[in-house]
Design a protein around this nucleic acid. Sequence first.
DNA 1: CGATAATGCCGAAACGATTAGCTGAGAGCC
DNA 2: GGCTCTCAGCTAATCGTTTCGGCATTATCG
Lengths: 338, 338
Amino acid sequence: MAATIKDVAKAAGVSTATVSAVVNESAYVSPALRARVLEAIRDLGFAPSQMARNLRNGKSELIAVVVADLSNPFYARMVCAAEAAVAAWGFSLIVFNSDEKPEAEKRILSRVRTLCCEGLILVPVGGTVAAVSGDHLDSRRIPTVLFGRTLEGDALDAVTIDNFAASYQATNYLIDLGHKRIGAITGPRRLSTGLARIAGMESAMSAKGLMVEPRFVRSGDFREEIAYSAARALFEQRERPSALYVANGLMALGVMRAIADIGLKCPDDVSIASTDNIPGIRGLRPNLTRTEHPIVDMVNEAVRLLVDRIKRGGAIEARHVVFPSALVVGDSCAPLRG
Amino acid sequence: MAATIKDVAKAAGVSTATVSAVVNESAYVSPALRARVLEAIRDLGFAPSQMARNLRNGKSELIAVVVADLSNPFYARMVCAAEAAVAAWGFSLIVFNSDEKPEAEKRILSRVRTLCCEGLILVPVGGTVAAVSGDHLDSRRIPTVLFGRTLEGDALDAVTIDNFAASYQATNYLIDLGHKRIGAITGPRRLSTGLARIAGMESAMSAKGLMVEPRFVRSGDFREEIAYSAARALFEQRERPSALYVANGLMALGVMRAIADIGLKCPDDVSIASTDNIPGIRGLRPNLTRTEHPIVDMVNEAVRLLVDRIKRGGAIEARHVVFPSALVVGDSCAPLRG
DNA sequence: CGATAATGCCGAAACGATTAGCTGAGAGCC
DNA sequence: GGCTCTCAGCTAATCGTTTCGGCATTATCG
């Protein structure tokens, strides 16, 4: 087995306290002893056990990130940024995927607790705070920052985008191109993001005196496959919208594929604008018109908030940072013809 | 602070041994006591400390995955699959990104060791085994499975694709379409993958009596941006290849973008075939002709090997599993005109 | 030179779980 | 009734660190 601090102490003829002092440079040790200890350490190949340190110090240097759908490039990108940000603060990142399943999230959160993670970045799928924090006392709550989505009824730190503005902008762009029958592939209403993006779209429409026709709206559940089916169903109706707002980038991919498979052309037959583009995939043709969001900045901010909360202990009031959205015009939209 | 097993024992009026027995179902406890214990656990919100368990049991239930480029969708997908596979075995996944930097890899590996990870899935960038396993004794080596890339000179488990066959297939397809001047955007030669894909291409060429012209070959370093620049440089020469083999999917995106930016059309002006498509991004237009590789199966196999090695202790001979590649024909290639 | 302070190191008690080994009560048997 | 046998549940050791308090030994000062 691996050598322990006791073996080193015995070999060097000193106490474990002295070895510890040498290893951690936490106290003065006379040069003679220090040398003996270092030699013993080298001879035995001693490396202090992080597990024992963790137990003793009550730290794990672990931060958990729980995302709603790891196969979604948006979250993959988020994990990438989080890995870097967390490492910069001396932590390591444990990744979990709740796959949009509240039960899975629950299981994961209890696992996060038993792993003694020092902090948690969470894309919640449970909907309620109770589902997330359980019925536990505040003092035993793991420092948490919500990412992307918020939860009602509790004051947790959160970093989100301005979902309302994002869908408003995208929809408004379509309206300005002359479109009147604008459909949507939305996210689930149980999520704050899904809801806000629907609200933003409806608001943009009614601001211009337009109505969202329910038959042109389908939920895509933020999933590519579902969005594909939803888009097919939508466009195989007798009457079609001339433009479509798609509530996230992954679904936009599915929609694009559906449109192509049906034999329609974008933007000739239908204009597409979306929120939350697929990061890292530039050069898609047609180039999607979408609102972009600074994922890396958002993640950095989330980690900053988290580390701050870890260092400063519990009693900080909840902070909510909202990042703006920017419309990036591609060539997936065309003015309404006729 | 969080409740400990002692608090629960006191609250339930039993010993810590009984609480432990209830929690782990490791011994019979009478229904009455069991109920009292469970109630106390619920009341106090007790979750056993993994750190204490780790120390006591000498396990951490942690598996680390170190990838070479987390921003590459291929590896993002790999992490996604690994998270699921690892969770299925009761482990949690710590993710690291070496960003193709050997120094970073070294730092990460020592961190993995101090974190007492029980296993390691590694996409090596260091090149040598020494860089990976350090000068440590075998007994303290962490069970490791290499993924995607191999290392010379040591017997570690590995799961890879058949890189040679992959590039051979893709190149051969281009040749069969009549192309003779076939260029390439390659990966770095210091990597086993980069090298084997170059070899496979050259082999396919010479099998048909063709030569790879060095002026039509550029390294893209497996990076999108670099591939973009390389492709621009390649196509802005006086003479151009009529077809291009691109050594990974991420670079293929960059190449596609470069081609479009230059004003060329794929497949009309140039045919593109690649290895290792971008997973999850179907519906790209044009649809890339590429060799596909079963990432999820590969990751599952890697985790299986790893868990096997963890459970069975050290003395198993190294296993190398090679997954085949399959050519998926899209519409990014056209027969040579004229 | 004796009282006090400072120094350098050690002993042992945590940290929070698991588990081997023990205790004591109840049951079964003669 | 006394003997053993069972077995639920307890006591205490253990994992490998860190760290508090203490204890010699030496330095400082009046």
